[in-house]
């Protein structure tokens, strides 16, 4: 069976965001976009989550908590970079307390901040690809021009 066919439960961690991505995530949960229709939701615990959704460029102080949260999510799991900062192309990229070497993301949603409608499309497309993919395989990341070299793992 393929994973995340019908639902993707998300744990959100802010790792240095300006709160723009957070507000747009809140909009996604609100009645205007109502992403629960598509099996998407924010969950209160990493133990309930399928995905870690990161906003912000990864401040040094949040780097470890971020890893702890990802480790606490049961496999199979994915990592979503939400917004330009998390995607490695935000305005804070060269600040001294920002980690430029970031972990590879399975899904990168660009935008500063991402438009909720486009973000919803990106999430639904990813779930569609998950449905279409071979058994048990998590869809490979879509190559992204602006990704850090370190994210191109293969």
């Amino acid at each position: 069976m393929s994973h995340f066919k019908h639902a993707l439960q998300i744990r959100h961690v802010d790792a240095g965001s300006c709160n723009g991505c957070e507000q747009e995530l809140t909009a996604l949960t609100s009645q205007a976009y109502d992403w629960q229709r598509f099996g998407l939701d924010i969950v209160a615990s990493a133990r309930h989550a399928d995905a870690l959704l990161v906003t912000g460029p990864t401040s040094d102080t949040m780097a470890r908590p971020l890893t702890h949260v990802f480790n606490a999510i049961a496999s199979p799991k994915i990592r979503i970079a939400f917004g330009d900062c998390a995607a490695g192309c935000g305005v804070f990229e060269n600040a001294y307390a920002v980690h430029s070497q970031r972990q590879r993301s399975d899904l990168v949603i660009r935008g500063c901040p991402p438009d909720p409608e486009q973000a919803l499309d990106a999430l639904r497309n990813w779930m569609q690809r998950s449905r279409d993919s071979a058994d048990g395989e998590i869809p490979r990341p879509i190559p992204n021009d602006h990704d850090q070299g370190s994210q191109e793992a293969d």
């Binding site: 802010d14 790792a15 240095g16 965001s17 300006c18 709160n19 723009g20 507000q23 912000g56 460029p57 401040s59 040094d60 102080t61 949040m62 908590p65 935000g90 305005v91 804070f92 060269n94 600040a95 001294y96 307390a97 920002v98 500063c112 901040p113």
Partner: peptide
Amino acid sequence: FQNHRGVELLLEDRTIEDVRRIVSRICAG
């Protein structure tokens, strides 16, 4: 200060044109 990135230093040495995009994103609110 969990989200401390070092914005004040990031702004140093920048030209007037360069500052604008960063300042715009100090806080979405």
